[in-house]
Simulated scan of single mutants.
Amino acid sequence: MNLFHDSQLELRHLRLLHAVAREGSLARVAPLLHLSQSALSHQLRILEERVGLKLFARNRRRMELTPAGKRLLTSAEAVLQEMERAGRDLAAMQGGPASVLRVSTECNTCYHWLPPVLSALQKKYLALEVEINVEATRRPFAALFAGELDAAIVYSTRSDRRVVFRDLFKDELVIIAHPEHRLAARKFVEPIDLAGEVILYYGGVDDVSTLATQILAPAGVRPKKLIKVPLTEAIIEMVKAGHGISMMPNWSALPYVESGDLVAMRMTRRGVYRDWKLAVPREKRGLDHLVEFGNLLAAYSKPAKLWKARYASKRRSSASFGKKTSRRFKG
């Protein structure tokens, strides 16, 4: 029996199999495929009848693939990815974009250095259309899982088989202050040193201060005041005017430190660092333009170059999404 030649399996069956394997339940798949849960249950039952085998083991927590389901999923992913490539190629023949990259970051300041990297990517992939989704900044993983993004530049991680990661670079969060601030001569500061300080932090309606909640509060330290500021540039100007201190990425503060307008101090003797990664949906990890996007971010983005120049004693190369070595990743 040939399931494909006999027209017993259709693309909608493969999409359903892939979605349920990724999400773990029909309830989570229903809004993604724009069908009711009962309709999906009916489709899955027909699929298993046509295959003649159970594809999922159902338990209280999630639906797990059976050995038969795992085998069929391997072929389904290959077929769906090839159909996506074919769709891009046909679109390019009609004058449209061969592919679209929808991207977001987990830090608003990253949008300052991201455009040059995207421009370099588009020089190599001339038919690539890029869409920056700023609205997904505060929820990059939810946007990835909902199919709203193709890639997210993040420093937090999730243990979820739906997404895979590639290491990019580290950056350091530093305390910035006016050159005449009482702590300006310090090479580093401890949480207790910031007791009674006015802290300026970037944020929207629902944001909180990372410095206050994750560093000062656990140490039992209370600042004098927390002031939420919606623009990084405004924070810089307020600190330059002596209206408070702030914590921000070293690469963001560097121009003002080099000009003498601000001083930067390490937060604690050991420093506070973030590990940045490129997160993509598992089924898209092999797309050429996403692989190259990771290469460019790791080699030429502003934070990556600063990290290599100032901190990295050994060059860490991440070679693939979810793996440690690959010829496709060279930097």
Results as ranks from 00 to 15, higher is better:
N2Y: 07
L3S: 00
H5N: 11
R15A: 08
A19R: 06
V20N: 05
R28T: 02
S36T: 11
S38E: 12
L44A: 01
V51S: 04
G52M: 02
L53I: 04
M63D: 10
T66F: 06
S75M: 10
V79Q: 07
Q81L: 15
A86T: 07
G95L: 08
V100H: 12
T109M: 11
T109W: 09
L128I: 06
E131P: 03
E131I: 12
V134M: 08
R139A: 14
V154Q: 00
L173N: 13
L173F: 09
H181I: 10
D206T: 09
D207Y: 10
T210E: 09
T213H: 08
I215L: 14
L216E: 02
R222T: 11
K225V: 05
L226R: 09
K228V: 06
V229G: 01
L231W: 08
M238P: 01
K240V: 08
I245L: 12
M247E: 10
V263S: 05
A264H: 04
R269L: 12
G271V: 04
R274G: 06
W276T: 00
N295T: 06
S301Q: 00
S301T: 01
K302P: 11
P303S: 06
K305L: 15
R310M: 15
S317E: 11
A319G: 14
G322Q: 07
G322F: 05
K324G: 13
G331P: 01
